[in-house]
Each structure stands twice: as structure tokens, then as C-alpha cells.
Design a protein around this nucleic acid. Structure first.
Length: 623
DNA sequence: CTAGGGTTAG
């Protein structure tokens, strides 16, 4: 019967049609007919080239069932495949995401070669099974397997710890693969992911040649560590050298542009992408959504999101949009979109989704909703269990709403030690709502785990001061002087005519600083007449009142706002960005500023947006 | 036959 069938499928039906061999059928895309031929041929009738062609086709088509039939045929006909074909089998199972089957092929292989080891290691790396990849690499080294550039490029992807990464780097040098371009890209990426930008940069600089991927790797490295300008410099160099960016490059560049809130540049990248007519890459769409929302253009972001076919939307697309609404304080929109996501059922919420939803409730003054969603997480309603971050989000939310005791209870219930960030936000809330007892407990603990952060001492000391506990204020100050304290310098920037203008606190670098200061002094009169009263509690140092006022005026966002007023025409909205969170005094300043000078002010701080119109801020003075 | 860079959150 089978034989009969075969003669119908590939026997020449006309004199002009010649008989096709299995490899020929495979290369003509006629896999099913090739498989029929295979099925009717008994032991010793199929050779190396037939199996090679069949397996190769199954790999390309990710045809699991068909490949399994080929494998079974080998076993049933007692065919003993050479290493090359066993590698093909291994690769076939690996590409079909059957890693256990692939590993079994490897284990049963009498003569493993580099390709066997490497193919398995790379599949483990590519699918995120880092520890399996590393274990196998170690086994390979023990078994005296000789690694090559393929092996190193693959295994580095699984080296998430710096010490493992360094050990592998040592081996790479020993085997003289350190200037290989694939190995180098992977190596610099490893260092970047371990937060070692200097080492990453050095690997990149030492590469004898560069291509799009290695350039993209260093761009990503810079962008991930917040070195956005450096990322853009490399991108410009890449363009000037005539290299053609691909969608991964664009995605990374968009991250850097989001960081600097460079909307115009972001639009230019968007145009490039459209003109290049690149295929629909969800990754690229997602980074465009994120870029628009981080640059303050939520409606563009939403339009991109809506235009994505439902089947293409990933959790990242939903999360980017949810985060956008959350940072703009639009709690209602967050909940609406989250509702749509759950209704659609195509994409499951993940831990980032819930983080965005909780922080959306926090920024949107919806504490009770946030709490009930959190309870739902514990009850298993969303398929995501709360982790430290989610607890931290609730602590922050309750604290800012003045529900200090509840916030403190949450800290105690956290599954792991609270981070300095969580305790810091609670301490800030304690100062704002003058909760001395809890503030003291939190502040002391915070100083233990983060003794180098000046802000911690000062906030606690402010709290003591408001309770009249001057002795504690003094001893705290002494403690602070003994510890080596640091504070990330605040800086703000504003874009004007294709240039970014940076201002630091009490700026000494901007070429027009004198002019800006003079203008600031001038507008201060008008501001005070309109009701601006400097809020001295925002000064974190123990200095006299007059000096406090001078320090407040030196805050970088006030300088940037003033520059905006000078540099742009009447009625033009002023968009300012800050690397830290905005202080109460500057927030108040910006509100009155918008009213007095009839300017719309858009201020993006480290966490969120403040859209200020006519003296009213979109955050509702709650951030 | 085997290879590098990837978007959201913190």
C-alpha cells in the first residue's frame, strides 16, 4: 500500500518529469513527499544526505512532528548516525523548543564535538536557561571540549554574575577570542548588564572592527545605565560611518531619547523607521509607545497602541501604555486600560503590569482601589503574586496619603527586607505628616543601611526639629558629619533650538547663567506679589534663613524655567526635565510661574509628569 | 551543522 502511494507521489507522471531524490524534494519545499519516500524505504535504504536534508528542512520549518518521524525512522531502521547528523538532531529539537530532547541527544552522543556542545549551550542561553548553559559549559571544559568563538559568544549571554563573567573573559583571552566581533559584543553586553560600563566601553574600544550589532550593544549599554548622551553619540557616529541601523538599534536609541525627553529627535527616529519600511516589529512599536509617553505625548502613544494589531500586542505594549498613564497621574485611564487588558485575555498581566496599576492608583489618589487590587493579588485574582516592589508601591501610596500607620504595617509585612527606596519614601511621608515616632524608627533603620545618603539625616533631623527635639537634631548632625555623605547632584534641562541647555544647582556652567540669574531676581518680585512664599523646609542643610532662600533659588529647575522664559516667545509652553524628584518649593514656584507669565509648564521629574496650566498642576499637588 | 545587540518596571 505504502509502496503504491509512493509511486503516485514521486514517480514521474509524464516523460518530462524526472524522478526526484529526497534531498531534491526537500530543497523544493516538498517535505511531505520526502517523508512518504522515507517511510517506504527500509533499513540501509536512506543515507546520510537524505537524513541531513530531511532534518535541515524540519529545522527551518520548525516541524516538530515531522522531525520526530525522521528520528524514529533512524532508530527503527537501526541507522547509526554520525556526529554531524546527531548534531542536526540536537539542533532540530533545540529549535523546536524541546530542550530536554535535545539534551538527551547530546548525552547519548559518543563523539561530541564543539558544535554539539555549542548548539546546546546556545539554545539554553537563547531561551533564558542560564544556569543550564553554564553547567553545560563547565561540563564541556571538564570533558576537554575545545570551545570556539561560537561557544563564547553564546555562553556569555548566560553570565549574569560579574565573577562568572570575568572568569569566562579570562578563558576568552586564553583562547585568543577577545577581539572577535561576536564575542566582543556579547562580552561588552555582559559587563554592561553587571553595571560595569567602564569595562564594557573598553571592550568596545578595543574591537578591531565594528558592525551594527556591536554598536547597538554599546548604545544599549549606555541607555540602560542612563548615560543617554553617550548612547546618542555612538548612534550619530554609526550613522556618519554609513552603517544602517536595524530595529534593535532604533529600539535602544528610543530608550535613550525617552531618558532625555527629546521628543523632536524621537519623532525623527519614527520617521526614519516609517521611511525604511521595516517589518512590523512589536519591540520597535513598544519603544515608540514608550518614547511618546515619556516625552509627554500620550495621545501619540495611544494612537500607536491602538493601531497595533491585537495579535501583535505584547505585555510590554500594555505595560508601556499603563506606565504612561500612571506617570501622568491618570488613575482612571490606568484602570480602564487594565480592564481592557483583562477582558481581552490575549495577554496575561505580569508583575510590571501590576506595578504600573498600583502606582497608577497611587499617583491618581485612589488608595482604596490600590489596596483592593493588592488584596486581589494575594487572593490570586491576577495570576501575579506581589513581590517586594509591589509592597513598596503600597507603602509609598499609603505614606503619601498620610496613612502612616498602615504604611508602617505594610513595611513589616514585606516578604523581604525593605529597600532603602521604600524606607526613604516612608520617611519623607513621616516628615510631611509629622509622624515622629514612626519616622524615627524608619529613619534610624534607613541610616543603618544607607549611611552615605545625606538626605536621610536631613529629613530625620527636620522631623526632630518640628517636634522640638533639638538634642536629637544636634547628635544627628554630628553623625552625618562623621559619615561620608553623598547626594546625587540635581540637574534640569530644557531644549531650545536643537540644543539641550543644562542647569545644575547654583549653576556655574551655563554660558548665559548671569543673564538667567538677573532675570530670576527680576521675576522673583512678581512671583512674591502673586503669592510665592519660599518654603525653607525644602533646604536640606543647616544654614541661616537668608542663605536657605538663596539655595532654594539656585535649584536647577527654577533656572531652567527662567531660561525658558527668556529664550522663548510669549505664550509658548515651557518644557523642563529634571533628573531627581521635584521639591515642594519648586513645584509651588512653577505653579505660580505658569499663572503670572501665562505659560503652560510641563515638568517631567524622575518619577512622573507635572502639566501645569494657570497655576494648577495635573498631579493635584500629590506626587 | 553551532554565534553577539532587544521594548515596559526598579
Amino acid at each position: 500500500m505504502k509502496l503504491l502511494h509512493r509511486s503516485f507521489s514521486s514517480f514521474p507522471s509524464s516523460p518530462l518529469q524526472t524522478f526526484l531524490t529526497i534531498p531534491q524534494l526537500c530543497s523544493n519545499g516538498r517535505l511531505q513527499e520526502a517523508l512518504l519516500d522515507m517511510a517506504v524505504l527500509g533499513p540501509n535504504m536512506l543515507g546520510f544526505h537524505d537524513y541531513d536534508a530531511l532534518l535541515n528542512t524540519c529545522v527551518n520549518k520548525r516541524a516538530l512532528r515531522e522531525g520526530q518521524r525522521v528520528h524514529t525512522h533512524m532508530i527503527k531502521t537501526s541507522y547509526f548516525p554520525p556526529t554531524y547528523l546527531r548534531n542536526r538532531l540536537l539542533i532540530f529539537y533545540g529549535k523546536c523548543d524541546r530542550l530536554a530532547d535535545a539534551h538527551k541527544v547530546l548525552d547519548e552522543m559518543p563523539d561530541k564535538n564543539v558544535v554539539s556542545w555549542t548548539a546546546m549551550i546556545s539554545r539554553y542561553s537563547q531561551t533564558g536557561h542560564s544556569s543550564e548553559a553554564l553547567t553545560l559549559f563547565a561540563e564541556m571544559m571538564r570533558a576537554d571540549g575545545k570551545p570556539n568563538h561560537f561557544t563564547f559568544a553564546s555562553v556569555l549571554t548566560s553570565c549574569s554574575g560579574l565573577s562568572v563573567g570575568k572568569q569566562v573573559h579570562g578563558l576568552i583571552i586564553k583562547w585568543s577570542y577577545d577581539s572577535h566581533i561576536y564575542v566582543g559584543s556579547s562580552l561588552l553586553d555582559m559587563y554592561a548588564k553587571a553595571g560595569r560600563i567602564e569595562e564594557a566601553r573598553e571592550v568596545f574600544e578595543c574591537l578591531p572592527e565594528r558592525d551594527v550589532v556591536s554598536c547597538t550593544a554599546i548604545i544599549t549599554a549606555y541607555a540602560q545605565l542612563g548615560l543617554d548622551e553617550e548612547a546618542l553619540q555612538v548612534f550619530q557616529k554609526l550613522l556618519s560611518q554609513g552603517m544602517s541601523p536595524n530595529y534593535v538599534t532604533y529600539a535602544s536609541v528610543l530608550t535613550a531619547l525617552s531618558g532625555l525627553a527629546l521628543l523632536d529627535h524621537g519623532k525623527q527616529v519614527h520617521c526614519h523607521v516609517l521611511r525604511r519600511e521595516l517589518p512590523f516589529y512589536a519591540v520597535l512599536q513598544n519603544s515608540l509607545i514608550d518614547m511618546y509617553s515619556k516625552c509627554g505625548n500620550l495621545s501619540y502613544a495611544r494612537r500607536l497602541f491602538d493601531n497595533m494589531p491585537e495579535t501583535e500586542r505584547t505585555s510590554v505594549s500594555w505595560n508601556a501604555m499603563l506606565v504612561g498613564y500612571s506617570k501622568h497621574g491618570l488613575g482612571k485611564e490606568v484602570l480602564e486600560l487594565f480592564g481592557l487588558m483583562r477582558e481581552g485575555k490575549r495577554v496575561k498581566p505580569d508583575s510590571v503590569t501590576l506595578l504600573a496599576v498600583l502606582s497608577g492608583c497611587s499617583h491618581g489618589k485612589m488608595e482604596d482601589t490600590g489596596l483592593s487590587i493588592f488584596d486581589g493579588m494575594i487572593a490570586g485574582d491576577y495570576g501575579v503574586k506581589p513581590d517586594t516592589e509591589h509592597y513598596g508601591c503600597i507603602v509609598d501610596m499609603l505614606g503619601r496619603a498620610g496613612r502612616i500607620e498602615e504604611a508602617f504595617e505594610f513595611v513589616k509585612r514585606m516578604p523581604s527586607e525593605p529597600t532603602a527606596g521604600v524606607l526613604g519614601s516612608l520617611l519623607g511621608a513621616c516628615r510631611l505628616h509629622v509622624s515622629v515616632d514612626i519616622g524615627e524608627a524608619v529613619g534610624r533603620r534607613l541610616i543603618e543601611i544607607e549611611p552615605e545618603n545625606a538626605g536621610n539625616y536631613v529629613i530625620l533631623s527636620n522631623l526632630y526639629a518640628s517636634a522640638g527635639r533639638w538634642e536629637d537634631v544636634n547628635s544627628l548632625r554630628a553623625m552625618m558629619l562623621r559619615s561620608a555623605v553623598t547626594k546625587e547632584p540635581g540637574r534640569s534641562w530644557i531644549q531650545h533650538e536643537q540644543t539641550l541647555h543644562y542647569f545644575h544647582a547654583n549653576d556655574r556652567t551655563h554660558p548665559r547663567r548671569e543673564e538667567v540669574l538677573a532675570k530670576l531676581k527680576e521675576i522673583l518680585m512678581k512671583m512674591k506679589q502673586a503669592g510665592y512664599v519660599p518654603d525653607h523646609s525644602c533646604v536640606l542643610y543647616d544654614v541661616d534663613e537668608e542663605q536657605k532662600e538663596r539655595m532654594l533659588l539656585g535649584h536647577s529647575e527654577k533656572l531652567a524655567l527662567t531660561f525658558g522664559l527668556i529664550a522663548t516667545g510669549d505664550g509658548i509652553p515651557i518644557r523642563v526635565f529634571k533628573n531627581l524628584r521635584i521639591c515642594v518649593d519648586c513645584h509651588n514656584f512653577a505653579k505660580i510661574f505658569s499663572k503670572v507669565f501665562e505659560r503652560e509648564v510641563s515638568l517631567r521629574d524622575k518619577n512622573r509628569f507635572h502639566q501645569i496650566v494657570g497655576g494648577v498642576c495635573s498631579c493635584g499637588d500629590y506626587w
